[in-house]
Amino acid sequence: MYMIKLAIFGFGAVGRGVAKILIDKERIRRLIGEYTVVAIADSKGAIISDSIDLKKALEIKNKEGSLPERLTVDEIIDSVDFDVALELTPTNIKTGEPGLTHIKKCLKKGCHVVTSNKGPLVVAYKELMKLAEKNNVKLMFEATVGGAMPVIKLIKRDLAGNNIISIKGILNGTCNYILSKMEKEKLPYDVVLSEAKELGIAEANESYDVEGIDSAAKLVILANALMNMDVKFDDVEIVGITKITPEAFEIAMEKGYTIRLIAEVNEQTLKVGPRLVSLNNPLCIHGTLNAVLIKTDLAKEVFVIGRGAGSIETASAVISDLAEIYSCEVNK
């Protein structure tokens, strides 16, 4: 029986979520067969072993803050033998780094990659896909858009054969929380934002979310991966939610509308911005949820809703990608 060797790069919320699920050997074996984790790295250190005890690794990370061995991801890729890299480091949509270098090196080495990191895909989608194909390995990225909510594989696999006409989505839970709260409680933006920060729903530096940047990055991935486009982040027309007034909700409501931050792609459009959404529209959702309305030529409308973030939730998408890589082999 072949033993699949996994490497985890990035041991934050998502990395640790993945590790927690991987502890459940019975659950994962059914999907991919025998496996072991041979490397884990964070920004300062690593653990390398033929068979890492994940429980212990989580304990060390919690207690010490960082992993003990002085090794970088680059050094690990050069020196450790593994089959799949789980690239879960922070997103940088300008440079794609450090994930971009990690992913390229892994693909060139002939390893599959599963990532939750938008940066590398936003910066170099086509290049990375070609590299994966050339090296006969897979690059999977379900977790980059919509967290646990299935979108990428849903469209690629379950809607195979369809042409995608348009995708409209709520791809940022923080923005949706703020807007739906403003709608319900008739409060100004600033008040709801500080509340969201206290609850840990918005980050201390919220601009990445509320300016629409995060949604735009995800939209670029959807357009390139699912609609056969070749667009860049700068092609997206972006308006954020920071200037929305409580009165806007009141007068929109008179016409049966609310306001949500919508990312939209079709042949003529690539934009993120606040939109009037009819109260009857399925995208009129509340709280931190994400949702996507897909329009195709054969299946027509398909609607998905789910959790766009969270440690275990996002790890769920990473695990499903891992399962997909080995699905053919297990079924044999």
Partner: peptide
């Protein structure tokens, strides 16, 4: 001025 358009 921000202009918020309907989705449909």
């Amino acid at each position: 001025i921000i202009m918020i358009e309907p989705l449909e």
